[in-house]
């Protein structure tokens, strides 16, 4: 009687564990596809980021701004002026 009980318990345990393994493996199997998709998205945005940064740097360079300003007709003003405010009477 006792050996039968032990054998039955073992049998049920093995079957239950087998089903659990199948279920877990099934869940994990699709994570690879999700992970691959996420990796692709990360790479895409990193590349986009780098391309946009390159554009910004080129557009905001002094060389670019200076040549654009010259094309638009801006001329360097060599005569600076200073606004000197009068000292208040009380301090004089």
């Amino acid at each position: 009687m006792r050996p039968r009980i032990i054998l039955s318990v073992l049998f049920v345990a093995i079957v239950a564990l087998t089903f659990t393994r199948i279920a877990v493996a099934n869940r994990l199997s699709t994570n690879g596809a999700v992970l691959g998709g996420l990796e692709e998205q990360i790479n895409f945005y990193e590349t986009e980021n780098a391309l946009i940064k390159e554009k910004i740097f080129n557009l905001s360079s002094l060389n670019n701004i200076s040549s654009k300003a010259a094309r638009l007709g801006f001329v360097e003003d060599r005569k600076g002026f200073v606004i000197n405010s009068e000292v208040p009477v009380a301090i004089r």
């Binding site: 994990l28 199997s29 994570n31 690879g32 596809a33 992970l35 691959g36 990796e39």
Partner: peptide
């Protein structure tokens, strides 16, 4: 690590 179809495994 990748599976047989080349997808990354978690």
């Amino acid at each position: 690590v990748y599976d047989a179809l080349g997808r990354p495994i978690l």
